Simulated assay, not measured.
Amino acid sequence: MKLMRIKEMEDYILANDTVSLDTLCQVFNVSKNTVRRDINRLAEKGVIKKVYGGVTAIEKPALIPFENRTIQNKDTKTKIAHYASHFIEDDDLIFIDSGTTTQSILDTINPNKQVTIITNSLDIINTAAALEHINLVVIGSTYKRKTQSFVGMDDPSTLDKYNINKAFMAATGVSLTHGLTNCDLLEYEIKKKISEKANEVYLLADHSKFGKSTLLTYAPFSRLDCIVTSKPLDQDYENYCHEHNIDIHLV
């Protein structure tokens, strides 16, 4: 358990570059003394260094830069996004998640559709701003350049007033055990709130995301209504989706 926590803490620090001790206590639900012991182990290992009030990564961050992630499986991700756009209907109020798989979802949408879009993705904001029939609501208080998204909510209850029909979500890892996961605490807060609020949750994920999990689960697998992916899923996923009425669409 301790070794697993230290490994997860290492991954979290590498993904976020610099993290405060208070944040590590909150994320891992441990005391500050425990955090200090764990980061001493990581400092001895040479992957992080201690700074005032926290720690910073000295290895290359585990999170691949956004521009490089965009290149990986680019054609597949674009096809998934274009396919998913057909689920958007007139008068929908939808959320579009930040991520390299969701960023192209508006490229093929009928420009005359009357849709309200809530998003924290800079790519989606830029695309939606050019479509005159789309109402655009931007959330997130801080711009994160690494993921080209706005993260954090000064008042998370702000999302409670929106009746979101459909949420088109991305994930760093997807598994039956750990559900839909990511490794950024501020992104997690938005993803979790949206997944709880939306009437229908659509997961847009290429085949490489399945069978993997990262630090934070923002929604259980059972929360899904639809999966759009690139290759047939393993039989255990197929069985689970059939039993829980989760639609699978292959692109």
Rank of each mutant, 00 (worst) to 15 (best):
M1P: 08
L3A: 11
L3E: 15
I6A: 01
E8S: 15
M9Q: 03
I13V: 14
L14E: 04
A15M: 06
A15E: 08
N16W: 08
N16C: 09
N16Y: 04
N16I: 03
T18S: 15
S20E: 07
S20R: 08
L21G: 07
D22F: 09
T23A: 09
L24A: 04
L24R: 09
C25H: 07
Q26V: 11
V27F: 08
V30G: 06
V35Y: 11
R36Q: 08
R36M: 08
R37E: 10
R41C: 14
K45L: 14
G46Q: 07
I48F: 09
K49T: 15
V51I: 15
Y52W: 08
G53A: 08
V55G: 05
V55F: 02
V55Y: 01
K60M: 13
K60N: 14
A62Y: 12
E67A: 14
R69M: 14
I71G: 03
I71Q: 15
I71H: 08
I71C: 10
I71D: 07
Q72T: 11
N73Q: 12
T76G: 00
T76S: 14
K77T: 12
H82W: 04
F87C: 02
E89V: 07
D90Y: 04
D90F: 01
D91K: 15
D91R: 13
D92F: 09
L93M: 15
I96F: 08
I96R: 09
D97V: 06
G99T: 10
T100R: 06
T101Y: 09
T102E: 07
D107F: 06
I109E: 05
P111T: 05
N112C: 05
N112I: 05
K113P: 04
V115K: 02
V115A: 03
V115D: 05
T116M: 12
I118E: 03
T119M: 04
N120M: 07
L122D: 07
N126D: 14
T127E: 14
A128Y: 03
A128T: 02
A129S: 15
A130V: 02
L131S: 00
I134D: 00
N135T: 15
I139D: 06
S141F: 01
T142D: 11
K144T: 06
R145M: 10
R145N: 12
K146P: 00
F150V: 09
G152L: 03
M153D: 07
M153P: 02
P156G: 05
S157P: 00
Y162Q: 06
I164W: 03
T172H: 09
G173T: 10
S175A: 13
L176R: 06
L176E: 02
T177L: 14
L180I: 13
N182G: 12
D184N: 15
L186W: 09
I190H: 09
K191P: 01
K192I: 00
K192F: 02
S195F: 01
A198D: 03
A198V: 04
N199H: 11
V201G: 01
A205G: 14
S208M: 13
F210H: 11
L216C: 13
L216V: 14
A219T: 13
P220M: 11
F221K: 01
L224C: 13
D225L: 10
I227C: 12
T229Q: 06
T229E: 05
T229Y: 07
T229W: 08
K231S: 15
P232E: 13
L233K: 01
L233I: 02
Y237D: 00
N239L: 04
E243L: 02
E243I: 00
I246Q: 00
H249M: 06
L250H: 03
V251K: 02
